[in-house]
Simulated scan of single mutants.
Amino acid sequence: MRQTEEVTFGGSGLDRAAELRGDIPALAERMQRPGARGVVFWRGKPLVSDDAARGETCAALPRLPLDHPLLASARARPVLLGREAGEVVLAYDISAWEPDAPQQEGFVDPSVQTHPDAPEGARFVELRTLLMALTPRDAELGATGKAILGWHDTHGFCARCGQPSDVTQAGWQRVCRACGAAHFPRTDPVVIMLITRGNACLLGRSPGWPEGMYSCLAGFIEPGETVEAAVRREVMEETGIEVGRVSLLTSQPWPWPSSLMLGCRGEATSEAISIDPVEIEDAQWVSRERLADAFAGLEPGIVPARRGSIANYLLRNWVADRLD
């Protein structure tokens, strides 16, 4: 598929400096350099510049020197994200801080939080609201930091014996202090599929989504299952539609909380929809012309998946006949 590197969270070519993760002296030396930098997260939200908080495209994640006072409130050792221009970049988590403006519940948290030690104009902002406001590099750093810090937040104990585990490998591994079991960050593979039949594609909506929002169907791959089999099973379970040929188009890291979205295209061999109300709220066939109108805001009742998501990317390229 053409232009696959344009998918949000992918394509920046970040040097992840994996060889430094287990080399404690070398990493410590690099953290002492004047060019070492940290990016900051609070409960999954990255610290971004004020322009990014308003949704404007710019280089948004401030890289703070490691002696910056904001980093002193980090609750654990930082995680090595990689290198930029030969200097290390680390993720710091200050989630123990209690702000005046609390988070808000819902599909997207629109609230922003301002730390008194943050650079002027910098805020903690929900990453999902920044999908089109970040440079590729900032998007990759934001997604990686959110995902790895979220993993540490929920995996502090050994899955084998239940005892506490310790962080090793510069944040990319945990080792149980009781039984010695090693645990690594998890990534859950998810198929998300553009199902077409002639000039129409199959769209569905889940309960709790914003009013009118429709998107591609998606679901987790099960153990022992191929990508192609997962596409066919999920579509059948949710809509009763049979799918024939399946092809993999592109992928997208999706840190809510730890998924890898595998963008696929499938050709439907049946048309009658029978939804599973436990899985989805509604599904419908939408013509290419109606979808184009929906992207233009001219189709009442259909709001496509938000810009920056792989679903939006697949649908826009299908409308423009750029999938192959």
Rank of each mutant, 00 (worst) to 15 (best):
L127H: 08
L217Q: 10
L203Q: 03
R54C: 07
T226V: 00
V235W: 02
P34S: 09
G198F: 10
R63L: 14
I241N: 01
D276W: 06
P253E: 07
D276S: 13
G266E: 04
A292Y: 00
F107C: 02
D188Q: 15
P46A: 07
C161P: 05
G13W: 03
R16T: 07
L249T: 02
A28P: 03
G22S: 11
K146I: 00
A52R: 11
E238C: 10
T226Y: 00
T8E: 07
D138A: 08
A28T: 09
T135Y: 04
L217D: 08
A305T: 03
G86W: 03
T114K: 08
W151G: 11
A18N: 09
R123E: 12
V40K: 10
G308N: 03
W285L: 05
W256G: 11
Q173E: 15
A178F: 10
A72G: 08
S270M: 03
S49V: 14
R54G: 07
A294C: 09
P25F: 03
E120V: 13
E237F: 02
K45C: 13
Q3A: 14
S270Q: 00
W97D: 04
P119L: 01
V167R: 12
L20T: 00
T269P: 04
E120Q: 14
I273D: 12
E279F: 03
I192K: 10
G121Q: 09
S12L: 01
G297K: 03
E87R: 10
G150H: 11
T196E: 15
F295D: 15
Q3R: 13
D138Y: 01
S95E: 13
I310K: 04
E84A: 09
L315E: 04
F124E: 06
R322P: 02
A76C: 08
Q104F: 01
F107N: 04
L81D: 07
A139T: 00
G142H: 06
A74E: 01
Q104R: 13
T129A: 13
Q104D: 02
L260K: 04
A91Q: 06
V7P: 08
R2N: 09
D109W: 08
T226P: 01
A118W: 14
E98A: 13
Q163P: 00
S215Q: 14
I195H: 05
V89M: 06
P119E: 07
A181R: 12
I24W: 08
M193Y: 03
L131R: 13
Q103L: 13
I273N: 09
A101K: 02
G212D: 04
A74C: 05
G22I: 03
E87D: 14
G263N: 08
A218S: 15
W209T: 01
G38Y: 05
E299P: 10
S247D: 09
W254A: 14
G55Y: 05
V227C: 00
S258R: 11
G308R: 01
L202C: 03
P210W: 03
K45T: 05
E87N: 12
I273A: 13
G244D: 11
G219T: 04
L248T: 09
W285F: 02
A53K: 12
Q103M: 14
D166I: 07
E237Q: 13
L66N: 05
